[in-house]
């Protein structure tokens, strides 16, 4: 799996992020951190997308590319000057190219504590199978 990058803009902690025109509730789009784990029968992809809701998250697969988008509503009163402003609040978007061993029809998603967890089952026929060797 590799990242598919669009135009790159600067993000809150100095990292770069992907930025493309889409339906947004805010001006800036952030690239959420990602953990990717390989299990025997599945992959798990975990994204930090705090401050959104289940209804505001879109997970799509198109041409072998998984796209995660999350809309984040502004949280601050507009007329306030912060005493300390270390991070920005905005939508999240990240794309991941999927391997051919993933059954894209069976991907499931769960959102809890600001974390989106995707379970990506591997195709049964592509899974390595242990072949039993019998003695004669």
């Amino acid at each position: 799996m590799t990242n598919t990058e669009g135009t790159v803009v600067r993000r809150r902690d100095g990292d770069v992020e992907q930025h493309e025109a889409h339906n947004k509730t805010s001006d800036v789009t952030f690239r959420p951190p990602l953990d990717l784990y390989d299990f025997e029968d599945r992959y798990e992809a975990v994204f930090d997308v705090p401050g959104t809701t289940t209804d505001d998250i879109d997970v799509t697969v198109h041409d072998g590319v998984l796209t995660v988008e999350a809309r984040v509503a502004p949280r601050y009163p507009g007329n306030i000057t912060p005493m300390l402003g270390e991070f920005g609040v905005g939508d999240f978007r990240r794309q991941v190219r999927l391997g051919e061993d993933i059954d894209t029809e069976s991907i499931t998603a769960e959102y809890r504590d600001g974390v989106l967890m995707l379970t990506l089952p591997k195709r049964a026929e592509r899974r390595p199978r242990k072949v039993e060797v019998r003695g004669g």
Binding site: M1, P33, L34, D35, L36, Y37, D38, F39, E40, Y43, E44, V46, D48
Partner: peptide
Amino acid sequence: PEGATPLRVER
């Protein structure tokens, strides 16, 4: 998580 090979760890 247990039993997994981490391919990418950013969190």
